[in-house]
Amino acid sequence: MAVGSAEDADLPWLDQLAADLAPVRPLDDGPARWQLAGLVGAAAVLVALALGLRTDLVAGQPDLMFLLRCGSLAVLALVCTLAALDHAHPGVGRSSDGWKVAILMAGLLPLAGLAQAVMQPDHAIAMAAQPSGWQCLMVSLGIASLAALPIIRHLRRGAPVAPERAGLLVGLSAGSLGALAYNVHCPFNSLAYIGLWYGSAVAIATVAGRLIVPRLVRW
């Protein structure tokens, strides 16, 4: 196809666009990743300073359940954050389902918690009645709200063509990052506790992201 053919010769708005062209730096996900890493790291430090670090971490002997919870949240946060940031760069045929696998993997913890609740209902009721559960939920969601901001700002600079899915991923990412930061304080190792309170934090952040973010990133 010839460039500058008669078909577009009478389009002065193209000349105007070209005349108004300013150089742009291709949108890079790197700064947003570093901002998030710094933000969540700072939040974890603040949580440790304000609420205290888990005693097993202080002793240098982390409980295996802590490692499992921490690892699950970290993997979920990493995969969903990368997927959310990538939504700033549209491209047909590039969709990846890795984040769905991460959700399935992370979903094993709440499922195990549910199983424990069925087998040990008294324990589950005690965990649900823990006042610190609400603290877990509120602090996690507070950090999640902050963590969502750099991702949303990045998406607004880009061209997300799937705002609903981007919103879902922002919520998942922010929720898991918030829970990950709070996790350094939380002294509980119960599956029922983790499934209920951590699961609720990630789930609420995900629903909020799905409902709120699309209208913020639509263009």
Partner: peptide, 21 residues
């Protein structure tokens, strides 16, 4: 939205996604 195109990736899928949207 020209900054959202990553030079490390092909151009036509980017254009196609924007055009379809």
């Amino acid at each position: 939205r020209r900054a959202s195109w990553d030079p490390a990736r092909p151009f036509l899928p980017w254009l196609a996604a924007i055009a379809r949207y």
